[in-house]
């Protein structure tokens, strides 16, 4: 597996109805990087992650995980969805949610047992939530919910992690804790891909980045591609996109900025 890209996305296009959400994206994520996907709202960051995970229908393109199809390599990939994607009033407790990360390895019909419980408790320890193992999930704060989801991904024991906005709505302390956890994962040789919003922290937290706005603007080491020029291309106006005359949902003023940029 050494030397092979952890994730290789080729010609990926996703459309909801007639509106393209991702347009012809080619992205290579080398093994062992901690990567931020950045881009404005509606840029398709979440869709990109979901397309890699085969959760949305793609119009074109393919995704390879360590050189093989996602279906074959599913076990190697861990997922942290957006915190708001589930109903936190579901009748269950923290430990049970974390154990769900083992359900795939358990396979059909088998129930989680002592081994799964121990793994869950160890993961909760890692994210600093062991005191909350028996807590009903509706009683958690936003940061705690996020850490439960991280623990659930940890017990998956994956090689590649895809995380959708793990810093959303968490306080500064939790954010630092999560970052050091992600860096620890990278130190173990795992690949971590994070949808990220806070541009200021990109150089500090990550070593790799992809700038996305429907099309992939740039990707590579942070110090090479995290440039003003690329950021302007990503956020400033939808320049390159408009040139194709594709319909887009940008507000009027944004469209105008884009046109001036041509």
């Amino acid at each position: 597996m050494k030397g092979e890209a952890a994730i290789k996305v080729e010609d990926l296009t996703v459309a909801y109805g007639e509106k393209p959400v991702l347009w012809d994206v080619d992205l290579t994520v080398p093994s062992g990087v901690l990567m931020a996907i950045i881009g404005p709202n509606g840029a398709g960051k979440t869709t990109l992650i979901k397309a890699v995970l085969n959760l949305v229908n793609t119009a074109a393109g393919q995704v390879l995980i360590y050189g093989e199809s996602y279906q074959k390599q599913r076990r190697l990939v861990g997922y942290v969805p957006q915190r708001g994607s589930v109903d936190w009033d579901f009748p269950t407790n923290v430990k049970d949610v974390v154990m769900m990360g083992r359900y795939g390895a358990l396979g059909w019909l088998k129930r989680p047992g002592r081994q799964e419980r121990d793994m869950a408790l160890a993961a909760l320890e890692k994210v600093g939530m062991s005191r909350y193992a028996e807590r009903q999930i509706s009683q958690l704060s936003g940061g705690q919910q996020q850490r439960v989801f991280l623990a659930r991904a940890l017990v998956q024991d994956a090689l590649v992690y895809l995380m959708d906005e793990p810093f959303q709505g968490v306080d500064a302390t939790t954010e630092r804790a999560i970052v050091s956890l992600l860096q620890e994962l990278r130190a173990q040789g795992k690949t971590v891909v994070v949808v990220h919003h806070d541009l200021q922290t990109v150089p500090e937290y990550f070593d790799w980045t992809a700038l996305l706005n429907v099309r992939l603007i740039a990707s590579g080491p942070v110090r090479d591609v995290f440039t003003e020029e690329n950021l302007r291309l990503t956020y400033g106006g939808r320049v390159s996109f408009l040139r194709h005359g594709e319909p887009n949902g940008a507000p009027e003023d944004e469209k105008r900025t884009g046109e001036r940029g041509i």
Partner: peptide
């Protein structure tokens, strides 16, 4: 009863269930 864990996961987080291969 047989599909207890599968139904629980499906009801709580279907996307995650899908990434686990269910």
């Amino acid at each position: 009863l047989l599909l207890w864990k599968e139904f629980k996961l499906l009801s709580f987080d279907p996307d995650f269930a899908s990434t686990l291969g269910f």
